[in-house]
Amino acid sequence: MTTHSPQPARRGLTVADAMDSYDYQIADDNTVDQANDIFRGADIEYLLVRDHDGRCEGLVTRAGLRPFLAPSRHTERTTISATAHQRGPFAWPTMGLALAAIAMRVKHLTVWPVVDEDGYILGVLTADRATGLLTVTPTP
């Protein structure tokens, strides 16, 4: 006969349960041209932006850079920090997933950087993943 020790009551889901790692980052002093090269080469829609200390500064999207790419002679000098892009506050891993999903809905975010207590990037939370985990009903 196999015995099982009682499982602790499961707390609500947190951002840590739903976040994904994300490897594509760019420094805020890189240029729009450099970001565009990464977007085209990696075929991605967003980049995490980090400051000179390596902390999360925000998130820039391919669509968000389009206005800065139009006058192509300026893209060599325009830095990511000079563009309009998503900035903090960011999600943290211990934040309740339901609260994060509500915040993302209110802010109209499809992706939200997740940072540690010092502001360093841990990963991203996507609205689809958060919604998907929250709508799964446990089986009895």
Rank of each mutant, 00 (worst) to 15 (best):
P93Y: 01
S21D: 14
H74C: 04
L109V: 04
A84L: 11
A9E: 14
P8S: 01
I80A: 04
D28K: 10
F90L: 14
T110R: 15
P8Y: 05
M95C: 11
P140A: 10
W92D: 04
V111Y: 00
G64I: 06
Q86F: 09
R87A: 10
Q7E: 14
H4V: 12
D118H: 03
V60G: 04
R10P: 02
Q7C: 02
L65T: 00
A27C: 15
L69M: 01
A82S: 08
H108K: 15
T94V: 06
V124F: 07
D51P: 01
P138V: 15
A42I: 08
Y120M: 15
R129H: 01
H4F: 10
A84W: 02
R50G: 05
A18H: 07
D51K: 04
L97H: 00
L97S: 09
W112G: 00
R77I: 12
P89R: 05
A103L: 14
T137V: 13
N36S: 13
A103C: 11
D37F: 04
G88W: 10
G12L: 15
L97R: 03
P93L: 00
H108V: 09
P140R: 02
M19F: 07
D51R: 10
Y120P: 12
D23H: 14
A103G: 06
D37S: 07
D43L: 06
I80F: 00
G119P: 03
Y120W: 09
Q7W: 05
N30S: 14
K107P: 05
Y120T: 06
D53H: 04
R105N: 13
D51I: 11
Y120R: 05
M95A: 03
A70R: 12
W92M: 13
P67S: 05
G132I: 11
P6A: 15
L99E: 08
